[in-house]
């Protein structure tokens, strides 16, 4: 091999190795399952929910003009139990400011939902997700996930994992004031019972 050839091989291999190192260094500690939602900045998906303990259904797009907090949850989901009281508080506190909280039940039976609500309380509409259409529409990967929709019907933020009252309040405040908001990841999501 000529001198130039040797130099070429060495520099090529070193380059590849260093690129490798850089690539993987950025990945240490990152959760390979975490991914951004392509929904942000797009109109809220056109989904219709069958409300629990009611004969009515709810079409999300009919709530246009209001700020929406769409919370995907399930009675078998452990972090969902933790965030439930915060959601109740949020629904109560922001009701007068034109904010609607909607719960969407993911992969569960109605009996379990009712039992959960009996135990932890009611305060906002909760709908069953027939054939997972809402979850598919929003691109849900696990529960809990919470989407924020502004008055124009645009999805502006997503919280992956349980919400906290502080984070949710801050997010809503910014939406009300028309300021840009950011998505966040607060913890693990559960994918199956």
């Amino acid at each position: 091999m000529s001198n130039r050839g040797r130099l070429l091989v060495i520099s090529a291999v070193s380059l590849i190795a260093v690129v490798f190192a850089v690539v993987f260094s950025t990945r240490f500690g990152a959760d390979p399952r975490l991914s951004p939602s392509p929904l942000i900045g797009n109109p809220v998906p056109d989904v219709t929910l069958d409300l629990v303990e009611s004969d009515n259904s709810l079409r999300l797009r009919e709530l246009a003009g209001q700020i929406l907090v769409v919370n995907f949850w399930a009675p078998w989901c452990v972090p969902c139990r933790a965030e439930h009281s915060d959601l109740l508080a949020l629904a109560d506190g922001f009701e007068d400011l034109g904010v609607s909280v909607v719960g969407v039940v993911y992969q569960s039976r109605q009996d379990d939902v009712v039992a959960f609500l009996d135990e932890l309380g009611r305060g906002y509409p909760v709908g069953m997700d027939d054939r997972s259409r809402a979850a598919i529409g929003f691109g849900v990967r696990g529960v809990p996930e919470t989407y924020f929709v502004d008055r124009d019907g645009t999805v502006v933020a997503k919280i992956t994992g349980p919400i906290s009252l502080g984070l949710a309040t801050a997010t809503l405040d910014r939406i009300i004031l028309g300021e840009p908001v950011e998505s966040a990841r607060t913890g693990e999501v559960q994918t199956q019972p």
């Binding site: 091989v9 291999v13 070193s14 190192a21 993987f24 260094s25």
Partner: peptide, 24 residues
């Protein structure tokens, strides 16, 4: 992870470097 990555990089550079220098 980082330790294995450094080891891998050293192996790649070390052995292919050696290879390029001495293969002839």
């Amino acid at each position: 992870g980082p330790a294995l990555m450094v080891f891998l990089v050293l192996i790649l550079i070390g052995s292919f470097g050696l290879f390029a220098l001495r293969a002839h």
